[in-house]
Design a protein around this nucleic acid. Structure first.
Lengths: 206, 206
DNA sequence: CCTACCGATCGGTAGG
DNA sequence: CCTACCGATCGGTAGG
């Protein structure tokens, strides 16, 4: 009984460390020997929980997806669907970028550019998780439009393209240049873009 | 005489291959043995031109910076300074993203997220080159504002934050999802943002 | 530019 | 979960 529980706990410790390492050095930087050294265990003890490095990478992506859901999607479940929830999610997303949850900043910003040129299950998994985040934003934007909170002339996909761009740019600028004002710039950009998309703004075509 | 010329040519062949590999698999993916295999030469033949892997990485970043200057900054030198040149540079930048110049898309998009968590000369070099591109955009935006082509209420850094975000998002979406419409979305976003920043648009505060 | 080699580390397995 | 080990590859050097 305690054996199984300890096994699950060790597995989660491995995944926790693996996410941190991947956020800084990418999924290729997650080597079995390094995790073993960091966690004070043997290589076979690490890999035994997953079977192969690819399985470990897939489990790491899944664990990071769960963190994303927990930090951005869960907190906004209580919000009114539509513009209120969209705004709250973007706010939580920017907060997450500066939260220090991962040592290397946004896990998927780091990992998606790493795997985008390497076909295979790991890439497919990263595509699926990031697409879920993207689709969530588009769905809320579409709903907001149907509710009359966003002007009819706006293309929801184009709107999300721009909003998501601010999030990625903020993480890039913060991580590469250490500029803490990047997060404030993203908030400013999001507010401006949503204000322009409101029906009150007269549409502004698109 | 031909000896020195051949040496320089080989060096450029190594750097050309190194840039391609780095755009797909990152600077850590550029291993001496892999380059040697790809180019049909020995490992010592490759590393002899640079002395160490770090020097090879630095030379690769420098070579990619030269490509960036050649494809984006050189073509817009003939444009009128200010808004015309800013617009032309953004246009050339988006064209570069879809040009197939590098197998893995924008070299610096791939490499900057890789090195942002690894202090050292390679990171410093990537910071310097990307900053030069950023500063170029800010300088042109400031000039455009002084010329009355951009409204006085606009913050040039905030404007460039948003414009640069569209460029990065386009590369991200294109590389990860294979969506060719990402480039058109970036053009749409750039046009809309610049139109909103024009004095004719009445400022729109910021 | 080459061959031949160095110690370290890689992912992974055998056997317990 | 461990030790002990495998072949492959890593960055780099010696000597030519």
């Amino acid at each position: 009984m305690t054996g199984r529980r300890d096994g699950l706990r060790t597995r989660e410790e491995i995944l926790g460390r693996s996410m941190q390492v991947a956020s800084v050095d990418g999924l290729e930087g997650v080597t079995i020997g390094r995790l073993a050294g960091d966690l004070g265990m043997s290589k076979s003890g690490v890999i035994g929980h997953f079977g192969s490095k690819e399985s470990l990478q897939l489990a790491t992506v899944g664990a990071a997806g769960a963190v994303f859901v927990e930090q951005i999607l869960e907190p906004v479940r209580g919000q009114e669907p539509g513009l209120a929830r969209l705004t709250a999610a973007l706010d939580a997303w920017i907060t997450y970028l500066g939260s220090g949850t991962f040592d290397g900043g946004c896990f998927f910003c780091a990992v998606s550019t790493e795997v985008d040129g390497r076909p295979g299950p790991v890439r497919d998994s990263v595509v699926a998780v990031t697409r879920a985040g993207w689709d969530f934003l588009v769905d809320e934007a579409r709903l907001a439009q149907r509710l009359g909170e966003i002007d009819d002339g706006v293309d929801p996909e184009q709107l999300v393209f721009e909003l998501h761009a601010y999030l990625q740019e903020a993480n890039w600028m913060f991580q590469l240049y250490g500029r803490h004002d990047a997060l404030a710039r993203a908030r400013t950009a999001v507010q401006r873009r949503l204000a322009d998309a409101s029906p009150d703004a007269g549409g502004k075509r698109r």
